[in-house]
Design a protein around this nucleic acid. Structure first.
Lengths: 143, 143
DNA sequence: TCTTAAATATGATTTTTGTCATATATTTTT
DNA sequence: AAAAATATATGACAAAAATCATATTTAAGA
C-alpha cells in the first residue's frame, strides 16, 4: 500500500512539522537520525518533496529544510503521490483494469468501502492535523 | 498492501473455485491464460499454495490443480499469508515497531480502524464466499 | 513395463525498489 | 571576493520482487 519511501517521507515531513519553521531550518543530518532513516536516502526524498513544493528548503550555510504554513496545509496523500505516484493507491485491489464501481471484482466488492475510507482520510488530513494530534497527546512519536 | 504475487494467487484460487472440482482438475496452462498471469510464474505460486494445503493437486496425466470443499473454506487471508508472509499485513502503517494500540503513531491513530476492518474481512471471507458472490451476480470477473 | 503428461524443485535472469556516493550549485560569512 | 556550509543533481550499487527456464518426480494409460 505504502512504499518504504513514502513512509520515510511522511516521517520526515512530520518531523519538520513539529520541529522546523521558516526561522528554524533543519539540516538533513539533523533529520535522518531521529527518524531512523539513512541520511543519503532521506536527502533524496526531501529533494523530491522540495521540488514539488511539499516542503521548503534553502541552500548554503544557515540553510536546511522547513515547512511554511502553506506547506503544512498539504494532505498526507500529496506526500504519497509525490513519492509513489498515484497509480498504486487508485488501483483496484486485484489490479484489474476492468474493475470499477458498477462492475466490481470480488475483492473490490468486499473491501472497497474500507479502502475508500482510508483514501478519503489521507486526502483530507493535513500535515498540520497530524502534528496537532501529536501535540495534543492523541498520538505519539518517536519515529 | 498486497504484493503482485498475492493478487495473482487470489485470482488463481478464485478461478479454481469457479471452474475446478475433484473430478475436474485444471492444468497450469489452462489457468494462466484466463487470469492473465505468465504460466511459469503462476505455476510457482500454485505450488506454494499446494504445499500449504490451500489448494490440491495431482501429478501426471489427468493431473492438475483443484479445490476440495475443505480447500474452499480457507480464508482469503490464508492465501495472502502463504504468499507474502504475515508481517506486512500486521505491521503499523509507518512500520514503527514501537507503535501499538495504546501508543499509536499519527498514521496509526488515523487509519487503523479502516485497516482492521479490511483485515477482519480478509480473515472471515472464504474462497467459497467469494465464488458465491460471483455466482449470485454480486461481483464480476474476468480476472 | 514403457511412454507420456502433468506437477515439483531449484535456481537463473530481469526489473523494481531501496541505498549510497560524488560532483555541482547556491547562499552566508568573513 | 573567497571560503565554507548547505541543498541539488546524477548516477552507481545492492537487495528484493517478479519473471522465466530446466531438470526431476509422479501418475495414467498403452
Amino acid at each position: 500500500m505504502l512504499s518504504n519511501s513514502s513512509k520515510y517521507a511522511i516521517k520526515a515531513v512530520l518531523f519538520l512539522a513539529l520541529n522546523s519553521s521558516e526561522e528554524n531550518k533543519i539540516r538533513v543530518k539533523e533529520i535522518a537520525e531521529p527518524i531512523n532513516v539513512p541520511q543519503a536516502y532521506i536527502a533524496k526524498l526531501l529533494q523530491d518533496l522540495s521540488r514539488e513544493n511539499i516542503i521548503s528548503s534553502l541552500r548554503g550555510p544557515k540553510g536546511g529544510f522547513y515547512l511554511t504554513n502553506e506547506n503544512k496545509n498539504n494532505s498526507i496523500l500529496n506526500i504519497i503521490v509525490v513519492i509513489d505516484g498515484d497509480k498504486k493507491l487508485k488501483a483496484c485491489m486485484l489490479s484489474l483494469d476492468k474493475c470499477n464501481e458498477t462492475n466490481p471484482c470480488p475483492l473490490h466488492d468486499m473491501l472497497n468501502n474500507s479502502r475508500d475510507e482510508i483514501l478519503k482520510k489521507l486526502k483530507h488530513k493535513t500535515i498540520k492535523d497530524l502534528a496537532l494530534s501529536v501535540k495534543l497527546g492523541k498520538s505519539f512519536l518517536p519515529l
